[in-house]
């Protein structure tokens, strides 16, 4: 009971302190210049406006989902949908037990997708997510060097150095969790053929739209995200959902 009472207090505090937490933000339509060259040319695509969760899905929110969808409770979810680590950091099948407002992790791509679908949305596409990040980077005035540093710092697990004020403007897109995307797996191609150089060393010069640390950091994210399997559950993999903007 004591534990519960404390988490209640914590929860209430956070709801009042950060009212935006439980909502979404509209990412306005615009052009997305892909930082990674996937088809031998720098691609520019138009991204329609969409709504995006302002933060990664929390452990509490995911607990609510598994209560409503018992087939996604850790002891019932078939092993084809996860690697064995699914929610093993929770107290029970339906209770995180601690850090209720932290982003949920140890969820597979299958589970993340099921959550968003049940919520009327979907996982963001790679284009949507990376576009949203570029929009928020501009809004937050996060310069290229600081951006690269934050990305490298996160991947080397020193997240506390990211500037606190960035996180709100950046929607926690950097520095919290690596986020599942609907089409996160890259298939580097070379015209009709699958690129034989892709996925190993020496990709940078061929595949970056601009040869600087910021693009390298972005490419690191593309590549490492791509190397997770859909059943992977790690302590740094979470997600948020996207929704169509009517």
């Amino acid at each position: 009971m004591i534990k519960r009472a404390r988490s209640l207090a914590l929860c209430g505090l956070l709801v009042t302190a950060l009212p935006a937490m439980s909502s979404q933000v509209v990412i306005p339509a615009g052009e997305f210049v892909s930082p990674v060259i996937l088809d031998q040319e720098i691609s520019r695509v138009w991204v329609d406006a969409f709504r995006l969760d302002v933060q990664p899905v929390t452990r509490n929110e995911f607990a609510d989902f598994v209560r409503k969808h018992p087939e996604w409770q850790r002891d019932r979810t078939p092993r084809i949908f996860h690697d064995g680590g699914y929610l093993t950091n929770w107290l029970s099948a339906v209770e995180p037990g601690s850090a209720e407002t932290a982003p949920v992790t140890q969820v597979s791509w299958f589970a993340a997708r099921a959550y968003c679908e049940a919520d009327g949305g979907s996982l963001p596409t790679l284009e949507q997510w990376e576009y949203a990040l570029s929009v928020q980077r501009q809004q937050a005035n996060l310069n290229d060097d600081d951006y690269a540093r934050e990305v490298f710092a996160w991947y080397t697990q020193t997240p506390f150095i990211s500037r606190a004020e960035d996180n709100e403007a950046m929607l926690g897109l950097l520095g919290q969790v690596n986020e599942w995307l609907e089409d996160y797996q890259l298939l580097l191609s070379n015209g009709e053929k699958i690129d034989f150089g892709g996925g190993s060393c020496g990709d940078t010069a061929r595949m970056l739209a601009n040869f600087d640390a910021a693009h390298y950091a972005t490419f690191l994210r593309y590549q490492s995200r791509s190397n997770y399997t859909p059943v992977t559950t790690t302590s740094t993999l979470g997600f948020r959902c996207a929704y169509p903007e009517e």
Binding site: C11, V15, M21, S22, S23, Q24, N60, E61, D64, E117, D119, G120, G121, S122, Y243, P244, E246
Partner: peptide, 13 residues
């Protein structure tokens, strides 16, 4: 895709 996609966050919290 889904029009009834109200977020459940307020409710669930």
């Amino acid at each position: 895709m889904m029009k009834n996609g109200l977020r459940l966050n307020h409710l669930s919290r």
